[in-house]
Amino acid sequence: MTPDEADHLKSKAHWVWRETLAIHRRAPETRIASSLSPIEIFVALYYGGVLRFDPQEPLADARDRFIISKGHGSICMYPILADLGFFDREELMRVCMRGGILGGIPDPIIPGYETVNGSLGHGLGVAAGTALALARKNAGDQQAFVLTGDGELHEGACWEAIMFASHHKLDRLNLVVDDNRTSMLAHTKDVVSLGALDQRLESFGWDVVIVDGHDVEATTAALAAMKARREGRPKALIAKTIKGRGVPGLENEALAHILAPKPELLDALMETRP
């Protein structure tokens, strides 16, 4: 990646961060903290050349399938999809409003979303089924990506899919964990510890890499390398992130998920430059 490309990704990430705050400012019902941790992951996937997609034909067969399982934590996808032309930018002005398509939790009526999200623990299994189908029908080189949170991995169905994926050598399956280490009521280590998640996934037969999920350059490189590896194992990228990143009072706060920053704080933050 050239320095210019890296700067472009960084400025996109900052723009998405500001737009996400702006959406929350207009629609305080949205969950802000969990939408601030995966921003660089989405920017890397969509602007870093990792995912293949077509905004004009969101369900084109040649696309990579990207299932965003942690639905409410993906409000930051709205500006990205609008920017890429999946839908009209005007939609960003009516998030959570009657007549709009962008809700507090994204639904698959939004161009660019594949499945029903938000009820946690379903995306990984559906992505495993998708990856199995791509393998069995001898599709081209399309792959399946799925984003989960770390708290979501408390759902047992995830582990059914994790076992299934390695047994079937689903090397078209790419799991990205937004490891912000915080669920709704507390830090996950204090709820039910996931321990050394990388070792756990490796022991289940997965190919696992850890990255600083706020280093957009490193995240892009790790995602591209993960996509390129087709070695008979499902792949996971654990992105170490911070819930509520960049917002004082939310960062590293155990209850960040349910906190809403004051409007004046949001206004001040939106003025900041990278």
Partner: peptide, 20 residues
């Protein structure tokens, strides 16, 4: 899928999304 009905349904959904 083994004794795993939750995964049975999610995998089935994924397969069906792909046209099966």
């Amino acid at each position: 899928v083994g004794i795993a009905e939750q995964n049975l349904i999610n995998v089935s959904a994924g397969l069906s999304l792909e046209g099966y």
